[in-house]
Design a protein around this nucleic acid. Structure first.
Length: 555
DNA sequence: TGAAGTTTAA
């Protein structure tokens, strides 16, 4: 089956998306360059050239698919999810669900100034609200808190429906991600009043989001207030707090909290391992060793997890001599390295350019009768791919199949990224098709290297195709992907598109870096695009305002 | 997403 972009004319031009609407329609109207391999098939292989009688032809390769599937894909309506292989709803009920999902997405895609405006707009919408629909919409709009929260409020008022704890948790996470801490607070109170829906899962999200916004002491406060919402302040909860503080660059605060709490909450092995890992990540090895000692004083001997954290830190320092010493110590103390330890060591050697030593690790794994898992294989594929050894990488994929370990999304992402790095665009796109065939769901990391390659080569049509493909799969760009698109397009002279992505980025609640604004404004000035400049300057002021507002909010 | 490991990267 081959999928021709022109056959998708309707979805391209109408481009019904919950996101990127204006960006996409802009791409589809101007006259852009075709991918090089389309113009010069010998450059990029045979995947793209079909007919070639018009600018819109761009073909993705695919191997299978019935005639029916072809027809359905080619004529697929703009509201159906774009899929290289067509999908049909399994039942009538399923079709209704899909239609409801599309209807809500369509409404939420328009830009609304506030969640309240969405509640009003939703009132004419006759869909059957269910927990599944709410979860799906929250997932789809998890990068657009206004849309997600507006819909959530509306759904909560519908007859015969009540939000479950799980939906509340997702909503808490989304508003937290965009630093809407007042709303987050309100949701927690509501969850409690409605019937004790607050759990450790909820409070974990609260603490992680607060720490993510550098509000470490607010996170500690949230921990102390947990029992007011009926969540026990036990060892498990304390470990979440410690881990959160450590992961969010505040191991010192974690240690402080631990020293305060350990009198009332008994620590376990995880508590110590979390802290050791925190110190190791901060490269404070003396402290890490001290915590290990403290661990032993409490009757816990260092485990493979503890040692592996140490090893990882020395790997980051490229101190492979110390790594070897620790491996020896582990064996002596009857705590042999496991597949995770080996993955770390192998990966670090590979990254340090010591490819052969890295590959020798595979032998050691076999000698130790350690069983490789998907992550280990993925790391091996990464090292081989980086070295351009694609045949060997494919051999590893075959080995995975042979040992009953299915290649996962990371396997594909690694292969795609390596192919892009070596300018093998055709292979990279083939892998994307293979993922679809194997029902392996792509994520944002699948697309980033492909998008980057398109930006670099100025393949704007292919870029559009990929963005379209991405949105249809409910994958929205993250902060870095937006930054990438804005800056690459800007550097490559596609200023209009760059500005549109910048606007969309802000409307999604992201705060672009000053450098990103500077870059765009600089290019606009060079081109004397004054009205666009004013618009972007206004946007910058808006972002600064949002930032101030979110810093003022108190938990 | 979370007590340790794998994919983007200026």
């Amino acid at each position: 089956m081959r999928l021709c972009l022109r056959a998708l004319g309707a979805p391209l031009r109408g481009f019904v998306l919950h996101s990127g609407k204006r960006v996409a329609s802009c791409f589809s109207t101007a006259g852009f360059d075709l991918p090089d391999w389309f113009k010069n098939p010998e450059d990029g292989g045979s995947c793209a050239g079909l007919g070639g009688d018009g600018d819109d032809d761009f073909v993705l390769p695919a191997k299978s698919g019935t005639l029916e599937e072809r027809r359905e894909t080619a004529t697929g309506s703009g509201t159906k999810p774009l899929s290289i292989l067509a999908r049909c709803p399994a039942s009538h009920q399923e079709a209704e669900f899909e239609a409801d999902l599309d209807e809500v997405s369509r409404i939420l895609s328009s830009r609304f100034a506030s969640p309240e405006a969405i509640v009003i707009a939703m009132d004419c919408c006759h869909v059957r609200v269910s927990g599944r629909l709410v979860d799906k919409i929250l997932h789809r709009f998890n990068s657009d808190w206004v849309a997600a929260f507006g819909f959530f409020m509306w759904a909560g008022t519908q007859d015969g429906y009540r939000h479950c704890a799980n939906s509340y948790d997702s909503m808490v996470d989304i508003v937290g991600k965009f630093k809407q801490f007042d709303l987050m607070c309100g949701l927690i109170s509501q969850m409690h009043e409605v019937g004790g829906l607050v759990s450790l899962v909820t409070m974990t999200k609260v603490m992680r989001r607060l720490c993510g916004a550098n509000r470490w002491s607010d996170a500690i406060d949230a921990f102390h207030k947990m029992d007011q919402f009926g969540v026990a302040k036990d060892t498990k909860a304390m470990n979440v707090l410690l881990d959160t503080l450590c992961k969010e660059r505040s191991v010192k605060r974690a240690m402080g909290a631990f020293q305060q709490l350990m009198g009332t909450i008994p620590p376990d092995e995880s508590s110590f391992n979390t802290l050791v890992h925190g110190w190791c990540n901060a490269r404070m090895m003396k402290e890490a060793r001290k915590t290990m000692k403290q661990m032993e004083e409490h009757g816990f001997s260092p485990s493979v997890v503890t040692y592996t954290s140490l090893i990882e830190a020395y790997c980051m320092e490229k101190d492979f001599q110390t790594v070897d010493n620790i491996l020896g110590e582990m064996r002596r103390r009857g705590c042999p390295p496991n597949i995770i330890t080996y993955t770390i060591v192998m990966h670090a050697l590979g990254k340090a350019g010591r490819t052969q030593e890295a590959l020798d690790t595979f032998e050691k794994v076999k000698q130790d009768a350690c069983t490789p898992d998907a992550s280990f294989y993925n790391s091996l594929i990464y090292i081989l791919g980086r070295a351009g050894r694609f045949l060997d990488a494919n051999f590893v994929v075959a080995e995975m199949h042979r040992t009953g370990i299915s290649p996962n999304v990371t396997t594909f992402n690694t292969l795609i990224s390596a192919a892009c790095d070596h300018s093998q665009a055709e292979n990279a796109l083939k892998l994307l098709v293979q993922m679809e065939e194997k029902s392996c769901k792509p994520d944002i990391k699948t697309y980033t290297p492909l998008l980057k390659l398109c930006c670099k080569r100025q393949w704007v049509r292919t870029l559009l195709f990929l963005i379209c493909h991405m949105f249809r799969k409910d994958i929205t760009p993250d902060f870095s992907t937006y930054t990438l698109l804005v800056s690459w397009l800007c550097r490559n002279g596609k200023l209009v598109q760059s500005c549109l992505f910048l606007e969309e980025m802000v409307s999604k609640g992201f705060a672009p870096k000053q450098e990103t604004f500077d870059l765009v404004l600089d290019k606009l000035e060079n081109r004397n695009m004054h009205s666009a400049m004013r618009k972007i300057q206004l946007l910058r002021v808006q972002v600064a305002g949002n930032r101030r507002k979110s810093n003022e909010t108190r938990w």
